[in-house]
Amino acid sequence: MSSLTDSVAPAARSAVPNPLARIARNYYLRRVAQSIALMFGVIIIVFMLVRLTGDPASLMVAREADAEQIAEIREIYGFDKPVVEQLTTYLGDVVTGDLGRSFLYRDSTLELIVSRFPDTLILAATALAFALIIAVPLGVAGGSNPGRPIDKLARFVGVLGQVTPSFWLIMLLIVYVGVKWGLLPTNGVGTWKHLVLPAFALSVGAMGQFVRLTRSAVLEVRNEDFVRTARSKGLARRAVARRHITRNALLSLVSVVGVQFTYMLGGSIYIESIYARPGLGQLLDAAVRARDFPLVQAITIFIAGFTIIMNLVTDVLYGLLDPRIRHGG
C-alpha cells in the first residue's frame, strides 16, 4: 500500500482524483481496505484448510458412520461440488451473514455465536479493565519515581503477573476467595460478582505486561528532549508529567492492549470451562468435542474477524492519538 503512495508523483497526486490513490493516501481508508482484504484471505484459508485435511464429511461424522451417512452429509454441505464453486458459494454465504448450520445444535452457527459472544466479550473487557486500572497508574507511578518503594512495587507486580501460572492462580482464587472465605461465587453467571474471579484470573498476565511496559515507557520518555523543553517553559511538575510524559508513554501501550485483548478472548476458552460460564469459549469447547465442523469453522472465522476488527480499532486509535501515523509519517 505504501509503495502505491510513494510511486505517485506529487503533481499527479493533486491533479488526478483517482479514488484508489485517495484510499491509499488516507491512513484510515487504507487500514479499512487492508482489513477487508485480510478478512477474505482468512476465510479462504479456513475454507482451504478444511478441504486440504481430507474429506470434511468423514471428519464430521462419528467414526462408526457408514458410507451412506457420509454421502448424505457430503450432499447437505455441498462437498460433492467442484472446489471453486464451493468457495464462491461459501464466500457468498459469508458475505450475506450465513456462516452455516451447526451440526450439534441444529441451528444457525451465527445465531449461536451471537447469543454466546456477549458473555465472553464482557469477561474479556472486564479483565482488560482490571489490568489497565491497576497497571497504568502503577506503571506511571513507578516510572516517575525510579528506585522508590512504589517503583519496587511496580516491578514486583510486573514480574509476578508474568510468572504466575494462571491455573494455579485460578485454583487459589476458587479455594480461598470462593470456597473458604465464601466471598465470591466460583461458577455460573448472573451478577457482577460472578465476573470478578474469572476476570481477575484472566487479567493477571496482561496486567504484568502493562505494568512493565508503562514503567519502562515512562522512564524512557522522561529523558526526552521535549520534556526538558516543557520544564524550561516553567510548567509545574504535574503538568509536565501528565501532558508530556504520560501521554507519550501510553502511546506505546495502545498496540499491546489490542493484542492482549484478543489473547484474552482466546484465554476465555479455558476460563469459561473452569468457571462454568456459557460463553463463546465453552461453545467452541463443545463444538470441538462433538466434531461440529461447521460450528468450529464459524467460530474460527468469527474470532479471526473480531481480531482483525480489533487491530483496525487499535490502528485507528493510534492514528487519533499520534498525528505522525495519521499523516503517514
Partner: peptide
Amino acid sequence: QFGRIRGREIGMVFQDPISSLNPVM
C-alpha cells in the same frame, strides 16, 4: 520558584528542534 522564572523571565531554545518539541501536541 523556578516555575516563575523559566519561560516567564528566561526562555530557552535547544539544539535539536525535532526532538525538543512534543510530537503529539
